[in-house]
Simulated assay, not measured.
Amino acid sequence: MYKLTKASAVKARTQAVNQLKSVLITADPALREELAGLGNAELFRTCARFADASTREEDGEESVVQATRITLGLLAYRISQLSEQIRDVDARLTRLVECRALQLLDVVGIGPDVALLITVGDTPERLGSESFFAALCGVSPVERSSGRRQFRRLNRGGDRQANAALHRIVFTRLRVDSRTQDYFERRIKEGKTRREIVRCLKRYAAREVFHLVGQLQPGPRS
């Protein structure tokens, strides 16, 4: 339920941000100049103050400028409210993960994103081995050979939300984890493509997550 709430709030906030910037493109040149060069955070704070401006109606071009400022203010206020909702849901998700699987938060690249825990909880009977979990997350290698050429491609099946969570883990590690960066450089020198390396890293991440959450699951059925 929290994931559903967060996803809808993120989508609505993205839409509001896009609308605000679209309004700026067609705004009065003086207003554009007033807001030029501001980063997103400062831009939203500045525009939010427009919503407190007078709502009196004016004639001619002034009414258009006034309507534009009020619109920017309302959109900025909406962005602020949605951001607050997202932070609140994130805090609730963090508390849930801390109570259920605190060990996940100690691993580089894994945050309070419960997509993987949802996948585990929805289908515990299928998690008899790490290979089952990898297939469930869509990161198990798929053979695709032709003649003398033998290689593996990405698995496009499985739970796409869990796959996206593993994708975020890998790219976070590529930015901040020295071991992952060293591995990437070594495989590049071996002639592997970036896509092939990411596939391997997602498979390794799935193995790590499986062993971290394995203790939460009942033993495999006989």
Rank of each mutant, 00 (worst) to 15 (best):
R207N: 13
L105S: 02
G147W: 12
I25K: 11
A91T: 08
Q217L: 08
I86T: 04
E208S: 01
L136F: 00
V176F: 15
A165H: 10
A67V: 04
R13C: 14
G37F: 07
E190C: 12
I197Y: 14
V65Q: 11
L201N: 05
T172A: 13
R56D: 15
Q103G: 01
E196I: 07
A115F: 05
L96D: 10
R149T: 05
P220G: 02
A91D: 08
A165M: 07
P141A: 03
L72M: 06
R69F: 01
S140G: 02
L20P: 10
L4D: 06
S140A: 15
N18H: 13
V213S: 01
G37V: 07
Q85T: 09
E42Y: 09
A41Y: 13
Y204L: 15
S22I: 09
R160M: 12
G128Q: 09
R100Y: 09
L102S: 12
F44K: 03
G158M: 03
A30F: 08
E33S: 14
D106N: 11
V213A: 00
F132P: 00
G37K: 05
D90I: 02
D177G: 04
L31R: 02
N40A: 13
L20S: 02
Q81N: 07
P124L: 00
G219Q: 10
R100A: 05
L4Q: 10
I197M: 09
R32T: 08
R148Q: 05
R194T: 07
L82M: 07
D28G: 05
C137F: 02
A53R: 14
V176N: 12
E34A: 08
I110R: 04
L74V: 14
P124Q: 02
N40I: 13
V209Y: 01
L72I: 08
T26V: 09
A164E: 09
L105E: 03
S22L: 04
G111L: 01
L105T: 01
R13M: 07
R203P: 06
R160Q: 13
S146G: 06
Q181P: 09
D88K: 06
V114N: 05
R149C: 06
S54Q: 12
E33G: 13
R126C: 09
S80K: 14
A164Y: 10
N155A: 02
G214R: 15
I25S: 02
L43V: 10
L74S: 14
Q150P: 03
F50Q: 14
A91P: 07
L212R: 15
Q66I: 14
R156G: 10
A53P: 05
L117I: 00
F151T: 06
V97H: 05
P218S: 00
T46S: 11
L43D: 13
L105V: 12
L35I: 04
R95P: 05
I70N: 10
Q215D: 07
D159L: 00
I188Q: 15
Q161L: 14
V142L: 09
L174N: 09
A30Y: 11
S145R: 07
G128P: 03
A115I: 03
L24V: 04
L117E: 04
L136D: 00
V213M: 01
L212T: 04
R87I: 01
R156D: 04
F210M: 00
P220M: 06
L38H: 11
